[in-house]
Write a protein that binds this DNA or RNA. Structure first.
Lengths: 244, 244
DNA sequence: AAGTGGTCTAGACCACCAT
DNA sequence: TGGTGGTCTAGACCACTTT
């Protein structure tokens, strides 16, 4: 484990160095998801800076969603929950305030292939590197609403194809089985119409509207570790976003 | 103009009260878009709190995008620029790093009608209230990429229909001519296929993919003042978003 | 009672900008 | 040179949680 010290002669502000150091400790699994980290006073002693500087650094990390704090309890490593934000985008069979249901998954294939150039570029690999390619249909209340293609660097996820992925979500598996917590992601949305295969899998007429969502998921260290494309039924897809 | 004072016996933190007071002054047009507000020291004297508390309040307002600060210059009221974030969603004829071009507009209609129930609800009006309804085609390099329907409460925007809206953006007009700066917005995205009319206006085949974006735009005081629906060409629409 | 984070103060010093 | 925001300190007091 690499330890970062605070360099008082560095031009970079002390609180920013503390931010980096704490991120490093999380990356190194010194502190893991959900764990309480050291208190303000302990951190101040450890880094030999004032409590105020620690407060500033922690507020930055809270702002970035890496930590959360509870008065009287402590400061904890946040567990980002994509399943929530994901299912929120779909209104299929959902009524106001209804508890969101975990979608089911039916895997169609899982195989190791050489990386296509587009995928290799997005995942910062060399074209031809081993890629685990999976295809699945996602369902809510037994009704298919989404077809997904998922590409993973095989060197990191060796053996994932042998696991029983029945009703489990993928991101907790990335985290628990492969020490690869997903921390953030970017998505590209584009409207499209259903091809014969997709229409068949989603049980909708050919050429009816579908939403194409391409996502690249990243670790704490901003390493891209998953590329996926989802084709969602147009009539059940409604993406909500607040600007500023 | 209503003046807010700081209540030291209030349970609400002082910095939060300062945040409210500054927001109020902006709402009251005491400080307007782009204007420099009082310095930290002046604010501390004015509100009779410490500079540290002012710093905390200002950092909240910067976080919310209401203010921006420049070392050595001062603290200013931010001018949100939706045109930038808007055009970013479309890749039509855009190459990497190319300067974004302001879309042209061709108005098809502008008339005052009684508010449809759905629009009235979204704009917090009574069904039947006067609504200014406008329809336009937006173009980039003379090529249509988007059809828009815009609904505005007529009581607030009386006379807008008589302005020459040739190549101007709407939000600066809302701000300058109607004292209604748009501060934030929410959008709902859904894929669809082009009807005959939309296909005709966009010069694409019927039933080809389009992105339907419904937007509600709000003021500083969270009053909804515009409802619009944009139908964008599927092949030129690519929405990018970062999650967390 | 002890420990945590949340608020608030009063100051110091610095980097940056305008004049 | 004087005013601005940015960083950092050392402390006080409070609200909340756990034991």
């Amino acid at each position: 484990m690499t330890v970062k010290y605070i360099d008082f002669s560095d031009e970079k502000p002390l609180y920013a160095q503390v931010v980096e150091a704490i991120k490093q400790k999380i990356s190194d699994n010194y502190w893991t998801l959900g764990m309480m980290i050291s208190s303000e006073n302990e951190l101040a002693k450890e880094f030999d800076v004032s409590v105020g500087t620690i407060k500033k650094a922690l507020s930055v990390l809270v702002q970035e969603g890496i930590l959360y704090r509870r008065q009287g309890r402590g400061t904890f490593v946040a567990s980002p929950d994509f399943s929530k934000s994901f299912s929120r985008f779909f209104r299929y069979g959902q009524f106001k305030g209804e508890a969101s249901e975990v979608p089911g998954s039916q895997f169609l294939s899982a195989e190791v292939i050489p990386a296509p150039t587009e995928i290799a570029a997005a995942l910062q690999l060399v074209a031809g590197d081993d890629i685990l390619f999976m295809k699945r249909v996602r369902t809510l209340q037994e009704i298919p609403f989404c077809v997904e293609e998922i590409y993973l660097p095989y060197s990191r996820f060796k053996g994932l194809e042998n696991l029983d992925l029945g009703k489990k979500l993928l991101y907790p598996i990335y985290n628990q089985n492969f020490s690869t917590p997903i921390f953030w992601a970017e998505e590209f949305l584009q409207p499209d119409t259903a091809t014969g295969e997709v229409a068949d899998l989603l049980n909708i007429p050919m050429n009816s509207p579908v939403m194409c969502v391409e996502r690249i998921a990243y670790t704490y260290e901003d390493i891209p570790v998953e590329w996926r494309r989802s084709m969602g039924r147009g009539d059940s897809f409604r993406y909500h976003i607040v600007i500023r």
